[in-house]
Design a protein around this nucleic acid. Structure first.
Lengths: 235, 235
DNA sequence: CTCTTTGTGTGCGGTAAGACACATAGTAGT
DNA sequence: ACTACTATGTGTCTTACCGCACACAAAGAG
């Protein structure tokens, strides 16, 4: 069997790399897997690696002093976890947690930085992705302020579904409530409504996406805005 | 009179530049002034310049289809307006509007990009600032979800005061409501409480900050988190 | 097959903030 | 000074969501 070309790695950023930088990096890309709930980076903690998810996805969240949490962004095979490394901050005040178990490539911080500093297509891609992520975070800020729990749940389900490799998402209402920054009961009530409308079906920690179209019809504009901008920057 | 050295320009990023890149850029820095309410960039619009505020400050906001708005970030003399240019996106889906009239330096996009691509201290500073801004936006996302109008008003007043050159801020409740993403009446009620407590005093579009300490005592943790991270990255 | 743990359903009272409606008070223009 | 306008104050009613309390149901452990 032939070597798989770059675009077969399953991560869109790696796949978009031209041959030259890809060949340079290839030996530094180490395949690995993420377990559900695993903490990738702790708030303010060390970041020895960057991660390029392929079938996994990772949630970026903030934890308040009183323990309440809310998600600011979500990274799947379209992106990279650990932007603070090439942004020069070494760490960030947010935590990164695995939200969907699966595979990823990791790369040592130093290897990544060496390539980044060459200033070529790798740097260009990383920065454009970062801008797309900024859009996602900004839109989350606005969405959190202006939209209902139900709308935000739709958006969250769609975003997660986009990054999952299946129609079944393994997560509890409790977990989702920590992402949306609402009570668990709030999620239960909103999820019931979506289930009654036939959009999803769930049992004890497993949610099945049955009707994406209806979800898309019910979601707020934020979902499309983020996708459109991602497409514009990296599509 | 001697030429003013870099650290006298009033913008912290420019002031932090070593002599060599500063000398290269100096002739490209064009002093100018911003009027209150002026739109610096329209959502998705062209970005011919980047701006380094000195006594002015600029608000980054999103506008929804229904016309409601909310602020995602605020840039004063600690930062730069137009990060999308060096991030490679050419434009962004958010609007930038002058929130405090005053002076700034502007630089042509191309001049800035040429220097950025050299990969030296200028690039390093821009990226670190961008990371600080990401923290600000993220914290806004979480704050919008978890904290009350009054707390968010405190935070917003403090952030604005930090970037203003005076204790008097020229803005109406209506304006602030568009930043916080709440109703005008909500701002009025919250501002009344702060005024009764002697923290501020306002009349028709002019707010005086009387007691920062009390504001700091009432504000949510978000304010400090953003400041601490800014300090860590650029202090 | 029971016991325990974990996840979900539901109801109730409380509160922050929304929408709307209008009163009043500064400020600017003539 | 009169007028027009803009900014702020206030009240009422409604709604979304919170906090709490507890019932029930599914899954896993022994």
């Amino acid at each position: 069997m032939l070597q798989e070309p770059a675009h077969m790695t399953g991560n869109h950023l790696l796949a978009a790399l031209p041959n030259e930088p890809y060949e340079r990096l290839r030996s530094d890309l180490e395949p690995m897997t993420f377990a559900l709930g695993e903490v990738v980076y702790e708030s303010g903690g060390p970041m020895p690696y960057v991660y390029f998810p392929t079938t996994s996805h990772v949630s970026l969240l903030y934890t308040m002093i009183d323990g309440s949490t809310a998600e600011m962004g979500l990274v799947g095979n379209e992106g990279v976890v650990g932007i603070a490394l090439f942004m020069g901050g070494e760490t960030t005040p947010n935590r990164a947690m695995v939200q969907g178990a699966g595979a990823a490539f990791r790369m040592k911080a130093k290897s990544m930085l060496d390539e980044f500093k060459r200033g070529g297509e790798f740097q260009h891609l990383m920065l454009r992705y970062t801008q797309a992520l900024i859009t996602q975070i900004s839109q989350t800020a606005v969405c959190n302020r202006l939209h209902s729990v139900e709308q935000r749940l739709c958006r969250w389900l769609l975003m997660t579904h986009d990054r999952a490799d299946s129609d079944q998402l393994d997560m509890t209402h409790e977990f989702i409530s920590n992402m949306l920054g609402v009570r668990r009961e709030g999620v239960t009530v909103a999820a019931q409504r979506l289930q009654e409308a036939g959009m999803i079906k769930y049992v004890r920690g497993h949610i099945n996406i049955l009707d994406r179209k209806q979800l898309l019809a019910r979601v707020c504009e934020c979902y499309q805005v983020v996708n459109a901008e991602h497409e514009r920057l990296l599509g």
